[in-house]
Design a protein around this nucleic acid. Structure first.
Lengths: 350, 350
DNA sequence: GTGAAAGCGCTAACAC
DNA sequence: GTGTTAGCGCTTTCAC
C-alpha cells in the first residue's frame, strides 16, 4: 500500500489537515511543524494520490491535445515540432500533456468529450481548424479554456482565442517571388476543402497573380490531401492540363516533395524546367531537398505561445479572446530559377 | 454543474448503483432497465468524472512517457516517429498518453515519481536506456508495468522487458560494407558514454575491422553529442588526426549530417572524397541527403510493439520479461563509393 | 435484479 | 496554529 496523508499524520503526530496544509505550503502552519512534517513525509517517500486531489479540487494540471492518427496524418514533422514546443512550455509551467491519436470523426469527438467532460484536463489545444469546426463548437459551449492554431474560415465567426500565420500573405509572397522571376504560368496545389485555411491560401494566390497583372485560371488549381501522394497526383494533373506550367506552389512541403517526384518522373528537372515551392510542414529544412523554396513558420514557437496563452486563460490572467498573428519567412533555395521557355513577356492564353 | 450518476439515477427512477452497473455493462441488470438508463444518460449528456473513477478503481487508462526537453533533445525526428507509433497503438486500445518533457536529472526523476507514485498512469514507456539507469531501478522497485526501448549496457543486469535493435550487428554491417568497397581507414563517431548502447556500437565497429583483418585504432574513434554540431566537431577531429580517412560512420543521422558539413567545409566532397554513414535517427529517409548511407530501424513499429507488450503486462496477459529484437535494414545510397586514394591493398600504419 | 451504504485519498470549511 | 468533519463522484460489497 502506498503512503498516504494519514500515514504521514500518524508518524508525525499531527492531524491529516495540518499535514495537508504544511505540504501545500499554506502560511498558517508553524514553521517548526512544517519542517518536521516535510521531513517525515520525505522519509516515508510520500507521494500524493493525484486522482484524489483532482477529484477534490477539480484541477488536473494537464492539457489535452488530440493529434491525428497516422493513417490520417497530414504531416508528422509538423506535429512533432509543434508537440515539442507545447511539451516544453507545458512542462516548464508544471503541466503534463494528455494526448490521444484520433482520426477526424466520431471517435475524435468522443475523445474531446471524455477529456473535457470527464475532467481530465484543465484546457485544450486544438490544431488545424476546420470549416464549421465541431470541436471548437463543443469546447466553446463547455466553457473550457482552449487555444487554437488557425483562425476560422473566411465568413465564419472567430470568437475564440487563436494563433495564426498570415498564410494569405505568405502564398502571395511566393507568387510575387515567382512572377518577379518571370514565371507566368503558376500552378497551385491546395489543401483539402474542409481545412479552414484553404480559402486564405487561394486568395493569396489570386492576389499574387493580380499583382503581376496575370489572369486567374481555375484550371491551374487542384486540391491535394497534404500527403506526398497528393502532391504527386496534383502536379501530374496540372502538367497534364498545361505542360507549359513553369512553377508549382504546393500548400505544404510534403506535397511539394510529391510534386517534385512527379516532375522527375516526367524527365523534367526541378529548378531548371519547373520551379517548386512548398509551405512549412517540414521545419527541419536542412533535411529537405535543397531545391525547395518554401515558407517557414516558427512552429516550435507557436507551440510554446499556444501554451502560454492557454495558461493565461486557465490561471485567470486573461479572459479576453486573443488573436495573435506570427510572422512567416520566405525561404528561397535553388529551385526558384527563371522559367525555362519562350521568355516571359507575352500574356498567356488558356 | 456537470451531470453525475445521481442525476441519471433520479431522472431514470433507479438507484445510483443500478445506473452505474447498467452503464458499465454488467450482466445482472435487466435489459429493459439498461436500455432505459442508457437512454436517459445520453439524453442528459452524462460523462463520468474520470478522476473519481480513477481514485476508486486505481486505474487511469493512460500510459506515461517522459520525453527529452528540447535543449537536451538528441533527435526530434526519432522521438516524433516513436511517439506516433506509441500514440496510435495506445489510442487503438483505449489508452491515453501522459507526456512530460524533461531533461535528464532530478526533475526528470521527480516526474516519474509523480506519474507512478501519484497513480497517474497504469504503465510507463522508457526510451534510451542509460548506464546504471536510475529510472529503470525506480520503476522495477515500484513494480509498475513498464517497457523499455534499448537493453542494458553490457555487463549490467537486464531484468526488465525491452525491445531493441541489434546495433552491434548493424554497425558491423556498415563497416563490412565500407571495407568491402576497399575502405581501410574508417572513423567512428560514438554516442555519449552514458548511453547504454554505446559499447555495443563500438564492439560492432571493432568486429567489422577484425572481419577485414584491419587493426583497431582508438584514434579513429571520437564521441559526439548526437547533435549535428557533435558530428561536425567529431569529423573535424578525426580528419585532423588522420587526413587520409576515407569513411566516417556516425552513430546517428544527425551527427552524420554534421560530419558532412565538416567535410564540405574542408572543400572535400561527400561520397567522392569521403563516404559517410549514419544510423536511424531520421526515419523520413526521403528527406535526408541522398548521399547518406544509413541503418534504418522500424521506429514507428517499435513504438507500436512497445505499447502492445506493455498492455500485455498491464492487463495481465503476460508476466514474464520479454526481450524482443527487431531487424534493421542497411540503406545504401550514393555516398558509399570506393575510397579516393592510393588503392586499398597496402596495410595502413598509424 | 435492485438498493443502501461504505470508502478510495484528498482539500477546505469551520470550530476552537 | 491545529483538529474535526464533510464530501468530491465513483465502484463495490452486501443485503434483500
Amino acid at each position: 500500500m502506498a503512503i498516504k496523508l494519514k500515514d504521514v499524520a500518524r508518524q508525525s503526530g499531527y492531524s491529516i489537515t495540518t499535514v495537508s496544509r504544511a505540504l501545500a505550503g499554506y502560511s498558517d502552519v508553524n514553521e517548526q511543524t512544517r519542517r518536521h512534517i516535510i521531513e517525515v513525509a520525505s522519509s516515508l517517500g510520500y507521494q500524493p494520490n493525484l486522482p484524489a486531489r483532482q477529484l477534490r479540487i477539480r484541477r488536473t494540471n494537464s492539457l489535452g491535445l488530440v493529434i491525428p492518427a497516422r493513417d490520417h496524418s497530414y504531416s508528422n514533422e509538423f506535429f512533432s515540432q509543434l508537440l515539442m514546443g507545447i511539451g516544453d512550455a507545458a512542462a516548464q509551467s508544471g503541466y503534463d500533456l494528455l494526448i490521444s491519436a484520433q482520426a477526424p470523426g466520431e471517435a475524435e469527438m468522443a475523445c474531446y468529450r471524455r477529456m473535457v467532460g470527464g475532467n481530465l484536463v484543465d484546457g485544450v489545444i486544438l490544431v488545424r481548424t476546420r470549416r464549421h469546426d465541431e470541436r471548437i463548437a463543443y469546447l466553446s459551449q463547455q466553457q473550457i479554456p482552449f487555444m487554437v492554431f488557425g483562425r476560422a474560415a473566411p465568413g465564419e465567426p472567430c470568437n475564440f482565442s487563436f494563433i495564426d500565420i498570415d498564410s494569405q500573405a505568405a502564398i502571395r509572397a511566393l507568387v510575387d517571388h515567382f512572377t518577379g522571376l518571370g514565371h507566368r504560368r503558376i500552378g497551385l496545389i491546395l489543401p483539402p476543402e474542409e481545412m479552414a485555411f484553404t480559402p486564405y491560401r487561394l486568395a493569396g494566390y489570386q492576389e499574387g497573380l493580380e499583382n503581376a497583372g496575370l489572369p486567374y485560371d481555375p484550371a491551374r488549381v487542384v486540391t491535394g490531401d497534404l500527403l506526398r501522394s497528393g502532391g504527386e497526383q496534383g502536379a501530374r494533373i496540372l502538367l497534364d492540363r498545361d505542360p507549359k506550367i513553369t512553377a508549382i506552389i504546393a500548400c505544404n512541403d510534403l506535397m511539394a516533395l510529391g510534386a517534385m517526384r512527379a516532375i522527375e518522373s516526367l524527365n523534367l528537372q526541378v529548378g531548371r524546367d519547373i520551379a517548386v515551392a512548398g509551405y512549412d510542414d517540414i521545419p527541419a529544412a536542412e533535411y529537405a531537398y535543397p531545391s525547395l523554396t518554401t515558407i517557414h513558420q516558427p512552429i516550435y514557437e507557436i507551440g510554446q505561445r499556444l501554451v502560454t496563452l492557454l495558461l493565461d486563460q486557465i490561471e485567470g490572467r486573461n479572459s479576453a479572446h486573443s488573436a495573435v498573428f506570427l510572422p512567416y519567412t520566405l525561404v528561397v533555395r535553388a529551385s526558384s530559377g527563371a522559367p525555362r521557355q519562350e521568355g516571359g513577356a507575352q500574356p498567356e492564353s488558356s
